[in-house]
Simulated scan of single mutants.
Amino acid sequence: MRAAICPGYGPVEVVRVDALDPPAIEPGKVRVRVAAAAVNFPDVLLVADKYQVSVPPPFVPGSEFAGVVEEVADDVDGVSVGDRVTGTGIVGAFAEQVVAPARNLTPIPDGVDAHVAAAFGVAHRTAYHSLRSVARVRPGDEVIVLGAGGGVGLAAVQLAVEMGAIVTAVASSPGKLEVAASYGARHLVDHRTADVRAALREALPGGADVVLDPVGGDLSETALRALRRGGRFVTIGFASGEIPRIPLNLVLVKGVRILGFLFQDLDSEEMRRNESELHELLASGRVVPHIGARLPLENTVEALRLVADGRAIGKVVIDVSG
Score class of each variant (00 low, 15 high):
F59L: 02
H124S: 06
E298G: 15
F238H: 13
L266N: 07
V145C: 15
V287D: 13
P27T: 02
Q158M: 04
I313F: 01
A95F: 00
L278W: 01
G255L: 01
V134C: 14
I25Q: 02
V134H: 12
A95M: 11
V134K: 05
R103K: 10
E202S: 14
P22M: 09
A37W: 05
G241K: 02
L177I: 01
V253G: 13
V12E: 07
T222K: 08
G67F: 14
D49G: 15
L188Y: 00
L252H: 12
V122G: 05
R228C: 07
V15L: 07
T106N: 12
R132L: 10
Y128K: 03
L297M: 15
D309F: 05
Y183R: 02
H279D: 07
A93N: 10
A226Y: 00
K315S: 02
E64L: 01
L306E: 06
P247G: 14
A135W: 04
E275K: 01
V211L: 11
E242R: 10
A156L: 06
M1W: 10
A223K: 05
T300E: 11
L105M: 10
R31N: 14
G140N: 10
N104I: 00
R132E: 11
R201C: 14
D43F: 02
A156Y: 08
V317G: 10
L131E: 13
G92C: 11
G231P: 05
V234P: 13
R232Q: 12
G150I: 01
L304N: 02
P139M: 13
R232K: 11
H191R: 15
E280S: 07
G310F: 05
T88K: 08
P244I: 06
L146M: 15
A38E: 09
A283H: 04
D74H: 01
A38Y: 05
G147Y: 04
I291Q: 06
K176R: 08
P205I: 03
G147H: 06
V253D: 15
A100T: 08
S80K: 02
R229I: 04
V145A: 15
A127M: 03
H124Y: 06
V152K: 06
T88Y: 13
R229G: 12
V98I: 15
R294C: 14
D110N: 13
A114V: 12
V98G: 15
G184W: 01
I236N: 12
N40A: 06
V161W: 10
D83P: 05
A48F: 00
L259Y: 06
R228V: 04
K176Y: 03
S284A: 02
E13Y: 08
A36N: 10
S80A: 06
R136Q: 15
A160M: 09
G216D: 12
S268A: 11
K254R: 15
L212G: 13
A303K: 00
A199C: 14
A160Y: 03
V98Q: 12
I236R: 07
N40H: 01
R294I: 05
P56Y: 00
I90Q: 13
D77F: 01
V287T: 05
R245V: 09
R273E: 14
